[in-house]
């Protein structure tokens, strides 16, 4: 038992050390980074953060942009996926097998290969540089997982419930609104969290769709910072950027870990 605990500590160190190192770096002065073992008087600073927040546009802007994309994608995906998942849950078993296979391969597909075609669509429709438009490809990319998760949880509901509702006189819309959607709320919650995290983190499509600086999402903004001066030292401001970019996700993971775990495992198991 004691061994188990030691190993667990090892895992935690492996998982968290790189993140702590970023946090440490972000509070260091350049001198402290260059001479980590020397005894310097001005070791700690908040300057990295003030620099980041006072730049134009402020780094908070990117956080806001990612939040907008995350929320609108989650909303759009659920709007389309819930009715579709309901109808998938009613398909005959043989066809359902093929639908699931299609959804699973779409979920497995390394979507980065799609970016060129999606870029063409964005150009043709003139919807580049629009955060809300970005949620269209995002919700398509999340659709397979959302459909797999939601349709399997629709299917898990006892059929009696829906029939009792039918006998009570609820039509399709009322059954969905009053009975079925409330009952799959747990699955909806985990799906939403997964969609949000995906959209917050997505990189290649945001990179090609968004070119205006004030509309960049966080991952793209970070990579721009990284690309701006590759070998420049010190690193304090970058580290501050990574810390700021990590905090929202840190909170999400800690608050919603149950939903995340159930979403990921169900997604894999049911698929």
């Amino acid at each position: 038992m004691n061994n188990t605990r030691n190993y667990l500590c090892l895992i935690l160190i492996w998982s968290l050390a790189p993140i702590f190192w970023q946090a440490y770096t972000s509070f260091c002065t350049p001198e402290a980074l260059i001479y980590p073992l020397k005894n310097i008087s001005n070791r700690w600073t908040l300057e990295n953060y003030t620099l980041l927040l006072s730049s134009n546009p402020s780094f908070l802007r990117y956080l806001l942009n990612s939040t907008i994309v995350g929320i609108s994608t989650t909303f759009l995906t659920l709007l389309l996926a819930i009715p579709a998942a309901y109808s998938i849950s009613k398909i005959k078993p043989i066809i359902a097998g093929w639908v699931r296979l299609f959804l699973l391969s779409a979920a497995l597909f390394p979507y980065v290969l799609l970016f060129l075609s999606l870029l063409e669509i964005a150009r043709a429709l003139n919807i580049g540089n629009n955060l809300f438009a970005l949620s269209i490809p995002y919700s398509a990319l999340n659709m397979p997982l959302a459909l797999l998760l939601l349709s399997s949880s629709f299917k898990d509901l006892p059929i009696d419930l829906e029939e009792a509702a039918r006998l009570e006189g609820l039509n399709l819309w009322q059954r969905l609104r009053w009975i079925l959607i409330p009952l799959i709320a747990p699955a909806t919650a985990s799906t939403s969290i997964l969609i949000f995290i995906f959209s917050w983190n997505e990189y290649p499509i945001a990179l090609t769709w968004i070119s205006k600086t004030e509309l960049l999402t966080l991952p793209v903004a970070i990579s721009r910072i990284a690309g701006s001066s590759v070998y420049s030292v010190p690193y304090g401001a970058y580290a501050a950027a990574t810390v700021l970019g990590s905090i929202p996700l840190l909170l999400i993971v800690i608050i919603f870990q149950k939903q995340i775990v159930s979403g990921l495992t169900k997604g894999a198991v049911k698929g």
Binding site: E163, A164, A165, R166, E168, I179, P182, L183
Partner: peptide, 19 residues
């Protein structure tokens, strides 16, 4: 349609809406 038949059914599982 089931509704217009004015029928009451008690299900084996009771089919109470859990929420």
């Amino acid at each position: 349609s089931p509704v217009e038949r004015r029928i009451s059914m008690v299900f084996q599982s009771y089919a109470l809406f859990p929420h």
